[in-house]
Nucleic acid binder design. Structure first.
Lengths: 186, 186
DNA sequence: CGATACATGTAACCGGTTACATGATTTT
DNA sequence: AAAATCATGTAACCGGTTACATGTATCG
């Protein structure tokens, strides 16, 4: 999944947050340091350049307030193209690589769906997560069975942790899917 | 935690794997692509420079085989200093930041403890994980309680996933701790 | 008037990704 | 002899970290 020419979760998070309401770089940084959204960087050296890139890509646009001072405040809002792109990224298919390498991004995408995202879309997303995660857990279990002899115990335990994490994700996705379906049928 | 002047988990993984037995860059890359250790990069542009840096830091040393050809094979083994450093990193204290930002590294450190690591060390490590994780889960739950009103449902669900992940880690650590203690008392 | 919160940015550095380049050895 | 596998490396690029630089507004 890539935001314009980019691929970082930070850009996606920024795009999604600016879509909810116009925000400045400072607003975003504050959000990243004071909420559990804070899995993202918040350092000015990451946030401001990311805003620049998103603007250059035409996905957000900043309007400068207090134009005449040396220290203007720039508030960014999402553009039409930005909204289209965001929607494509958020609702795009779940790949196995997403599950293996980018679980954070999966959860971010889910979190960025707003309350008027159709229940079918939510369900499809969760089904994708479940499908790909089940495949992956199966292959992890195979690896485990194949490798466990001759592996230090602590490595075995560490692998069990990895598998347990995915099983927890699976349980979560199944539970949420059930709740989403219940809401669709009402 | 930093490996010499570095901080990447890739360097730590390489140091730990080279500690088990001497390996070449190619060996490491193969390991990273064919085993679930593959959460690490495996790209030549990451592995070979990392080996260079570890060697420059005096933590590993490479011996060139087939010296007279243009395409020599370099096999690296860990140095005395490397083994000391590795042990310090692996058995060092668990911080809250480790739990929040570097769970992968925590599991890597645990996996790299070998079978003659004293049971007390393993237990101490796991106790640290449990302690810090419990603190973090508590604060996540507070955030959740504080923020859940006015949050899109999908964001709420995403947060629940995060909390569930940590609870899964907690369950794992408690189980493994029990097993480790059982082994110590026998 | 000093501290603090608001607010934006840049530059050096670091390490991973991608893509490319090259050569050696083994298998078919 | 071609193909596959073994094997090492480099260069351009990208984006995050750290640290620094700077200025504004508000409050006591």
């Amino acid at each position: 999944m890539s935001v314009g020419p980019e691929k970082s979760t930070l850009s996606l998070a920024i795009l999604g947050l600016v879509a909810l309401e116009p925000r400045s770089g400072y607003d975003l940084r504050k959000l990243f340091t004071t909420t559990p959204m804070g899995h993202f960087s918040s350092s000015p050296g990451a946030v401001y350049p990311a805003l620049d890139r998103l603007e250059k890509a035409g996905l957000i646009s900043g309007s400068t307030q207090k134009k005449n001072t040396l220290r203007p405040r720039r508030v960014y809002s999402i553009t039409k193209r930005g909204r289209v792109t965001l929607n494509e990224i958020v609702t795009g298919p779940i790949t196995r690589d997403d599950v293996i390498w980018r679980m954070d991004e999966i959860m971010l995408r889910f979190a960025l769906m707003d309350d008027n995202t159709p229940g079918e879309t939510l369900a499809g997303f969760l089904e994708g997560v479940i499908e790909q995660t089940e495949i992956h857990v199966k292959s992890l279990r195979d690896d485990y069975a194949r490798l466990k002899e001759g592996m230090p115990i602590t490595s075995k335990y560490a692998m069990e942790h990895g598998i347990a994490q995915y099983r927890s994700t699976l349980a979560w996705a199944k539970r949420v899917l059930k709740e989403v379906r219940k809401k669709v049928n009402s």
